[in-house]
């Protein structure tokens, strides 16, 4: 390989960060109110589903696979949790109990699609693309069945209060309060800091990053993605590993679905459909290789930030949101081309 100039190397290595900075600068200039506490929170808030789905995708992509079902699983769990809450409330439970029980039950049910994919990939040696597509189709069909194709009604407003609450509130004279909006006179400004759902997402993402980066499980994940045969010979139980990987992926997607239900007090099968493209793009921009063995959760989060800044920024700048798809497509291609030209730089193992 010919040597690249120092500058090119510098840019090639950090292009994602530089690109993010560039985006922020541009949108701060052209977008109304982009560069503000609120703007930042909107970016991050839009990002919650994306962060979760892309984290799910990261684990699978590091093993050399792809998970096409994440969006469907998200819709599935949104529908399931909404149906469960509605049914329990109807049965006479208090909204809070119903919501808590429904979340627990959905988290358990949400693992099933992951286990199915994991079984197909690990045990039956089905290509991940097809295994997760089949699972996705089945799950999507079940969501349509349960929801009758439309939105699920009957979720109590309490869900919305939880879903749109903030971690911290600040009001003049009342100081900070956690989770509960301070009682203030009409017209008094309350500063809202960190949406609760974002905090939950952040905690999950940090744990996920730790698992992939610092645990034996994470090491084995890279090993399988790098060379499956070698991993088998090294004594890694890859059947079980795939089962856990796809279950984990389904878990993150399920969480995204539950958060969707809380935010919109409804569940619909298509809740996550539009995130599939973005989540894969986020992972690839973040430096993962679709051939497996490379990629980090933090890289993925960086990739997702680029996308969510783009989405929010374009919207605030008054550009029709559908132009976003053109941008996302181009960025994806750009990311892979840069990856071709600087392979050894970007695929450095953490």
């Amino acid at each position: 390989m010919t040597r690249k100039s120092g500058f090119a190397t510098f840019v090639g290595q950090r292009w994602a960060v530089l690109f993010l900075c560039l985006e922020v600068v541009v949108f701060s200039i052209v977008g109304q109110g982009f560069f503000s506490l609120n703007g930042v929170q909107i970016v991050l808030f839009y990002g919650t589903s994306l962060f979760l789905l892309a984290t799910a995708e990261t684990f699978v992509i590091v093993t050399g696979g792809i998970d096409l079902s994440v969006g469907f699983v998200m819709g599935f769990s949104a529908v399931i949790s909404a149906r469960l809450v509605a049914a329990m409330v109807l049965a006479g439970m208090t909204p809070l109990t119903a919501i808590i029980l429904a979340i627990i039950a959905t988290l358990a049910i949400g693992l099933l699609p992951g286990l199915l994919s994991g079984f197909l990939v690990g045990r039956l040696k089905v290509t991940s693309f097809l295994a997760t597509f089949a699972t996705g189709g089945i799950v999507y069909g079940i969501s349509l069945l349960l929801s009758g194709g439309g939105e699920t009604k009957g979720v109590p407003d309490l869900a919305n209060v939880i879903g749109n609450s903030y971690f911290l509130y600040w009001a003049r004279g009342k100081g900070f309060s956690i989770f509960t909006r301070p009682e203030v006179a009409r017209g008094t400004r309350v500063i809202e800091i960190l949406p609760s759902m974002l905090v939950i997402t952040a905690v999950v993402v940090i744990v996920a990053a730790f698992v992939l980066n610092r645990t034996r499980f994470g090491r084995h994940t890279y090993a399988i993605g790098g060379n499956e045969d070698a991993a088998v010979r090294a004594g890694i139980n890859i059947r079980r590993h795939y089962l856990v990987i796809y279950a984990l992926s389904a878990f993150f997607a399920t969480l995204a679905g539950i958060i969707y239900m809380l935010e919109y007090i409804t569940g619909k099968p298509d809740a996550g459909t539009s995130f599939l493209l973005d989540s894969i793009v986020g992972v690839v921009i973040g430096g993962a290789s679709l051939y497996g063995g490379a990629g980090t959760v933090w890289g993925t989060i960086l990739g997702c930030l680029i996308l969510s800044v783009l989405e929010t920024g374009l919207r605030m700048a008054g550009v029709p949101t559908f132009d976003k798809f053109i941008a996302v497509g181009l960025i994806l291609i750009l990311a892979v081309l840069i990856d071709q030209f600087f392979p050894e730089l970007i695929h450095k193992e953490d």
């Binding site: 693309f129 793009v281 497509g329």
Partner: peptide, 27 residues
């Protein structure tokens, strides 16, 4: 061209083209 000349995996290349085509369609 992306796939054959630039060795972009087909999955990614066509996903990128998908995004661009979809954007233009909506536009």
């Amino acid at each position: 061209i992306l796939i054959s000349r630039f060795r972009v995996p087909p999955f990614i290349a066509t996903l990128g083209v998908l995004g661009v085509a979809y954007g233009f369609t909506l536009h």
